[in-house]
Structure formats: structure tokens, C-alpha cells
Simulated assay, not measured.
Amino acid sequence: MTFFEEFFSNHIFLTAACGWFVAQILKTLIHLIISKKFVAERLVGSGGMPSSHSATVCALVTATCYEYGAGSFEFAISLILAIIVMYDAMGVRRETGIQAQVLNDMMKIFEDMGRSEISPHDKLKEFVGHTPLQVLMGALLGIFCGVIIYTFVI
């Protein structure tokens, strides 16, 4: 078996990738419904509802549990990784997004005063982290994807 055949037959990887993919599609659709604008960046970007970070790692944890059991070291490692990723998404990354929003607002004030040292193209990215609800919804989506894949596909 070649590397690519092994890689793309890895059920744990495919389940995690599916969790990410479904979350990104939902995130794009939810943004479209709320803002009435299609933003292609939402298909791959971070931030927003649901958290694709949470969906990915929770799908990973669910698949690992199915493959190796809840008592395995693989499950323990994936669970700790998931906790760290979700904590970071709600903490440091969310604060970074809030700070970016404040700085962008300050730059707008400078621009209105006739001082535009930074172009609108250099605006800081505000969609970086997640609210606890976004993380929770991403986690539930990831678990759901894992259960569906292992129940009906594999």
C-alpha cells in the first residue's frame, strides 16, 4: 500500500477532516444568512459559528474513541489536545480578535482625521477566536460527525 492509499484510508483522519469541512460549510452558510453576503473567506477562515477548530478535534476524539477505546493512550492524547485547542480558541485567540477590532476602530479614527498611514488592505483580522457558544456548537458538531461516520459509514 502506498503512502497516499494508507493516508486516505485512515478513518480517524477522514473523520476529523469531515468535522472541519462540515463546520466550514455551516459557518459560511450561517454568515451568509446573517449578513446577506457571501464571503468566500468564511470557507477556510477561522472564527465564527460553529468553531471548526472544535469540530475538528472533537471528531478526532470521537474517532479515536471508536478505534482504540476510552482507556487508550491515543484517546487520552487526542482528548488533551482537544481541550487545549478549545480553551485556546475561547481564550487567547478570542482576545486577539477583540484587540484587533479595537485597533481597527482606532485606525478608522485616524483615517477620519486625515491620517492614513495604514491602508484599508492592512486592516487586522477580527475573526480569530470563538465565543463559548461557538466552541460548544463546534464540539457537538464534531462528536455528531464522528458518531454518524462510525455508525453508518465505517
Rank of each mutant, 00 (worst) to 15 (best):
F3C: 10
E6Q: 14
F7H: 11
F7W: 14
N10K: 04
I12V: 15
L14A: 05
L14H: 00
G19A: 02
G19R: 00
W20S: 02
W20D: 01
L29Y: 11
I30C: 09
H31E: 00
K36T: 11
K37D: 03
F38T: 03
V44F: 14
G45K: 07
S46Y: 01
S46G: 15
P50F: 08
S51K: 02
S52K: 00
T56Y: 02
V57C: 08
V57R: 00
C58P: 01
A59P: 05
L60F: 14
L60G: 08
T62Y: 08
T64E: 05
G69W: 09
E74W: 04
I83P: 12
V85C: 04
M86P: 04
A89M: 05
G91V: 05
G91P: 12
R93F: 08
A100D: 06
L103F: 03
L103V: 15
N104F: 00
K108H: 06
K108M: 13
G114I: 15
S119Y: 09
H121E: 07
K123N: 07
L124H: 03
K125R: 11
F127G: 14
V128A: 13
T131E: 12
Q134R: 10
Q134N: 06
A139G: 12
A139P: 08
I143T: 08
I143S: 06
C145W: 02
G146C: 04
G146P: 01
G146R: 02
I148H: 04
Y150H: 12
Y150A: 04
T151H: 03
F152R: 00
